[in-house]
Design a protein around this nucleic acid. Structure first.
Length: 117
DNA sequence: GGTGTGACCAGCT
DNA sequence: AAGCTGGCCACAC
């Protein structure tokens, strides 16, 4: 796959997609972490916005592995079902209760650290 | 082509 | 301690 180069010609969207696709199975990350990895701490909203478009992309974007920094499944409703995201995460070993990942800290995957950004 | 909005985050009050 | 506001940038109307 293409390397994720900061300030590349790729759109913010594509960069977000690339990072999300790199999330290992059973791991999760946060919007802010991705945004920070892309160089814009305050652009966390863009990440969510980008993931919103991931729905229509041909590639399968594991957007369910992206939650807010609280580990809460804020965008679960955008998966076509209110419980789709939660079940997907549970299948990967996440412990979710009240739309929140209890072992979020354990499963947290920091692109900044894992990708050696 | 300006305005609004969005699956957020962190700093103030 | 808890609630609120600002800010960030890209996309749709």
């Amino acid at each position: 796959m293409k390397p994720i180069t900061p300030a590349s010609d790729a759109s913010f969207f594509e960069k977000v997609y690339e990072v999300v696709k790199l999330i290992p199975c059973g791991r999760v990350t946060s919007y802010g972490a991705i945004a920070a990895y892309l160089g814009s701490r305050g652009s966390a909203r863009m990440v969510g916005w980008a993931l919103n478009g991931s729905n229509r992309t041909h590639e399968a974007i594991p957007a369910h592995r992206v939650v807010n920094r609280n580990g809460m499944l804020t965008g679960k409703h955008h998966f076509g079902g209110p419980d789709v995201m939660q079940q997907l995460l549970e299948q990967e070993g996440a412990i979710i209760e009240e739309d929140k990942i209890l072992n979020f800290k354990e499963l947290f995957w920091d692109p900044m650290r894992e990708l050696e950004g």
